[in-house]
Design a protein around this nucleic acid. Structure first.
Lengths: 316, 316
DNA sequence: AATACTAATGTAAGTACTTACGAATATGAA
DNA sequence: TTCATATTCGTAAGTACTTACATTAGTATT
């Protein structure tokens, strides 16, 4: 049991299962106490049928909170033990309408008595504990419905990664990474164009010297993202060469880079930033939208074939 | 979900299972987040092996709190995925000694990172709730280890029944029940003897008139237990004709009747009560012991063949 | 009236464990 | 040393559900 002590919270669901199994086996002992040839797992279904005969499978399933398949299986067993009868629905022939047999009606009072005894014992049991299990379960179900465990973990992971990510400005040593990351995604979706190679092979000449900037994201000592601002005129910059390595995608890196680029454009005196992309690149378009960019109707002519959408972000 | 609302506590174990399933499926989503081809249920076993290589199956099972069979199955899968190697133990050829492969060592840091992220998320999740699930589980496991659910339910049921059981004194109308209950058990284990029939057919003549008494237990309008005090001399009574209907056995009825008889003997001025029985009737002997009776070495001669033990209770 | 869709439910197979059983090896007592 | 007993582990089957799929019946649309 060292495992639980070291990783308590992570092993929660396993512990839930263990406890559930313990309680199930103890419930079986309870049934033995009452000398009924009745299995604990039948109880929920039998209970709802006894309380309201004439229900059909789906209704019962809804009541007990299991699937119709589980109910169907239990009904089969109850029928085999002569406790219920199942008939076709009169109005709707698809339905299986369930009622108690005489044998079922005979054991019902004992079962009720037993249920009441169990309820009392369980209440007393819960009262013995400082942390109420039932309420804890309810709260946990609610919390998990509000926000998935995976979502919560992702948030934490992204925060951790964000704290490890640094946004750097371009120096000549970054050229190979800058080129490689962009070539990678362009070749995945489109074909490299001459305009690409010019900018990627000679960023100083084609981006920096005309007054642009290049930003890079580094994570664990590696360059995993790039982004460039290209100066069009004194008030207009183009956001381009946005690339994130596949192994670092999904960490919110694109957003960090985009944000940094927009802030940089502001300090450079830009009144607007625009970009060109392709509607095929849905995640990218979503990212740009999240950054505040909106589609522009008629844009400037693009040197790239692959672009079929222009977006713009006015800077206040 | 009406079922839960009406029978909340009784359905606890079912709810535990549901929550466990919910968390298990969400845990699977978490693993998807980290792009590992690794199944959640492997984690506990893999974790212990990574933390301490060279353990054998039973040790791992003990660590993770599952059975060796479960560990064995998981190890088989881990081996198939090339994450561990299993070798025969050097000293003890029965043992399977487990270590990580290089592939296993490679994914271990990611897995650790993930476990730490999950632990953080779960801690935050637990902090969101007012009733701490983990502590509730621990408390419930402890409480159930202290005293079984079946035992608790039995206590409550016995109390309920006790409150419905009445101890009556004999009137002639009870003779058929008195006879029937005794005949039932005697014939089950032995044969009816002439001495039995005399006392059962004519209790007034053979028990009451010589100064004895008969007590009966009634439950839900039926006589379900009998017990007689037969006067031997002014200071000695024999406890006899103790019978409890099979349908009312296990409710502590014998104890109630015995207690009442002993108190009655005291008020009649007895210095001792003794009884005769057969060691074959283990539950009865246990009952007499619980009532305070102890085995006597040399007793009075018995009119019954079936008796091979005498027990006595001195009254203060 | 034919067609496409949806609903109801039975059945099979999967899940993540358990218990039961059996084979191989080790240990202890005679 | 030998034989009964205990330990270790793998495999099979069971458990109490689930999901996936198949079948039949009803409903809406053309």
């Amino acid at each position: 049991m060292n495992f639980f002590k070291q990783l308590g919270p992570a092993a929660l669901s396993s512990r839930l299962r263990r406890l559930s199994e313990l309680m199930t086996s103890q419930a079986a002992d309870v049934y033995r106490l009452y000398n009924l040839s009745f299995e604990p797992r039948w109880f929920p279904v039998f209970y709802t049928v006894a309380m309201q005969p004439g229900q059909h499978v789906n209704e019962i399933a809804e009541s007990v909170g299991h699937t119709h398949a589980a109910v169907s299986q239990v009904l089969k067993e109850l029928m085999k033990h002569g406790l219920i009868t199942v008939q076709r629905g009169e109005l709707d022939q698809r339905r299986s309408v369930v009622t108690l047999t005489d044998a079922g009606k005979t054991i019902w009072p004992t079962l009720q008595q037993q249920a009441s005894d169990v309820a009392q014992a369980t209440d007393a049991l819960l009262a013995e504990t400082r942390h109420n299990l039932l309420k804890a379960i309810e709260e946990m179900e609610y919390a998990l419905a509000q926000s998935t465990l995976a979502f919560r973990v992702k948030t934490i992971r992204d925060q951790r990664i964000a704290s490890e990510v640094q946004i750097l400005t371009y120096t000549p040593q970054h050229q190979p990474d800058f080129k490689q990351l962009n070539v990678e995604w362009i070749e995945q979706y489109f074909r490299l164009e001459p305009a690409d190679l010019k900018a990627l092979d000679h960023p100083e000449q084609y981006i920096l010297e005309p007054g642009g900037q290049i930003l890079l994201a580094s994570y664990q000592g590696q360059i995993v993202g790039t982004c460039a601002l290209i100066k069009m005129d004194s008030e207009t910059y183009e956001l381009a060469k946005m690339a994130v390595s596949p192994r670092a995608q999904g960490f919110g890196l694109g957003f960090r880079l985009g944000e940094a680029a927009i802030n940089l454009a502001r300090t450079l005196g830009a009144k607007r930033v625009y970009l060109e992309s392709n509607t095929k690149l849905e995640p990218a378009i979503n990212l740009y939208h999240k950054l505040g960019f909106r589609k522009t109707v008629a844009g400037l002519p693009s040197p790239y074939e692959r672009c079929n959408i222009q977006m713009e972000l006015p800077l206040a």
